[in-house]
Amino acid sequence: MTLPQTMPAAPEAWTLPSKGRVAMFSFIVAETSIFTIFVVAYLFYLGKSLSGPTPRQVLEVPIFSTICLLSSSITIHLAVHYLRQAKYAAFKLAWFLTFALGAIFLIGTGIEWNKLITVDGLTISTNLFGTTYYSLVGLHASHVTGGLIALGIVLALALAGKVNEKHEHHLDVLSLYWHFVDAVWVVVFTVVYVIGR
């Protein structure tokens, strides 16, 4: 079968969405359904514990660490913005702030858990509240940890001077993940500390 190639060339430029962004959005959809199931379980078991302690007795609203985590969304956005304009010093500062704010959030969670375990005697096996609370907040914290590891690697590379505006796309995709982690915290916060108390 010998056929000449007769197809006329495609008239206008052929552009498709960036595969990094598409993949990250797909991943976020998958993550959203994991969190949805844990949130549903939390709400379903609200007030069904057969023994104490209850959320109202022991939970304190973590205002400070919440503010830290949410502002880290702004700093990472700025960081990518500065990188795009090749303002490296500003980029490094903003990226470091993002990392630090995320770390403060995680430390806050650690302090909160320490108090719950040692002072209030609430562990994952104490009652249904403990089971659902630690798994939902823990699932989120593990995502923050994963994000911090990625942020930390980028930070180390940036301090070594190995990040330039060519990497803007990769960091943009990473920032999508970080925004997602923050957005999930808004939901977790609402469910655990507002509705749940």
Binding site: S26, V29, A30, E31, S33, I34, T36, I37, F38
Partner: peptide, 9 residues
Amino acid sequence: LFTITPLTA
């Protein structure tokens, strides 16, 4: 994407 992760959860 919607259905595998509920099983994971």
